[in-house]
Design a protein around this nucleic acid. Structure first.
Lengths: 198, 198
DNA sequence: TCCGTAAGATACGATCCGTATCTTCACAGG
DNA sequence: CCTGTGAAGATACGGATCGTATCTTACGGA
């Protein structure tokens, strides 16, 4: 990854190269062993260049992850609330697998004392799934007549993502079986109890 | 915290003094800034003594927390499954408040790559609440006739602790309102769906 | 062509991990 | 009461990595 002596990148090009290098380094050595020096070397640059853009290791990682996660995907319409829920939880799982348990925990831990970075993280990565769930899956179910707006308390809106996130943070993955359990034993019963017809 | 020159503690006495010092240090500077040297100094001993007992910083922390958390508490019999569930979730919250979000995330993060420490954590701190839930709350509900053994899938046994843990890990606390929501909007409906009479 | 700005290289202080080494004490067994 | 053993406690070390300071060099606009 050594760069030609007479080719010096700048601005956007350099920034993207660093983010790519950070992702590659992260994929290779994992969150815990990722170092600024390693990223710099892989990107063909040096630490001060990184610190000129991100104030700390964790902020670089957040930027790197936000840069890599596919944004605003659509949940396919499977024709039923149950199918859509399974699709959403599966999408959530794939995203979390991309990041990995160690990195999720590490980022959350390092961010838990810093309200600014915390808000950035939530706005960029955490709240989006809930929005997808509500604007896509739940709204479709309402259109189908399976759900009513009034059934959806804030807690029930968050429930699916809460369940899969917990599974991932504590048990490092969510199996297909686990997803089915969440949907059939928890989410759908909770919705039906408030009047959903599924 | 300097010790008298001619008084050398050993065995159990020394170990407890170290755990107390670790807890004091943790309460004062927090998880992220707790160092082995700081704990040793406060305990009036030195790092090698610590490393003779615990193989790493995180294992000392786990032992320290496990030592401080009140063990095998009883969930009061409130006369109903709902009341018992609220009591359990409240107890879980108090325990987590004692530890704090930062330390919970930090410990989970450091342990996520180390299966040995991971097992120590689960055996000492995580599984116990589920056992309390099952052996206490759920068994009483079965005796009352509110629940049947057959209603309790593994997922539903874990559900209450999963919910409150997620709340704490992501939002740093669980309010009374949040606990009520979990019980009334999620847990009880899920149990009723499988035949519980509550 | 020339100059300012940022890139890139290097070195540094600081912190903290986990270990090795060595001395000193407490307790047990004779 | 005396002495040997093993753990306690002090100190120092190598190694990693953080974030910063300093300096030279190239790019690109005027």
């Amino acid at each position: 990854m050594k760069r030609k002596a007479t080719s010096r990148r700048r601005g956007e090009e350099l920034e993207q190269a660093i983010l790519d290098a950070a992702w590659a380094e992260f994929s290779e050595v994992g969150f815990a062993r990722l170092t600024m020096e390693g990223v710099a070397k892989r990107a063909g640059t040096s630490k001060p260049v990184l610190y000129r853009r991100w104030p700390s290791r964790v902020e670089l990682l957040i930027a790197c992850v936000a840069n890599r996660i596919p944004r605003a995907e659509l949940i396919p319409d499977t024709g039923s609330l149950r199918g859509d829920l399974v699709a959403l939880l599966t999408l959530a799982r794939e995203r979390m697998r991309l990041i990995g348990q160690g990195a999720m925990l590490g980022i959350l831990a390092e961010v838990s004392a810093d309200p600014v970075a915390r808000n950035a993280l939530f706005a960029g990565l955490i709240d989006e799934l809930v929005t997808l769930l509500y604007a896509g899956v739940y709204q479709r179910a309402i259109a189908r007549g399976e759900l009513d707006e009034a059934h959806l308390t804030p807690r029930l809106r968050r429930l699916p993502t809460d369940l899969v996130r917990n599974e991932f943070l504590v048990f490092s993955d969510a199996s297909d079986t686990a997803i089915d359990e969440m949907v059939d034993e928890v989410i759908l019963p909770a919705l039906r109890a408030r009047g959903a017809r599924t």
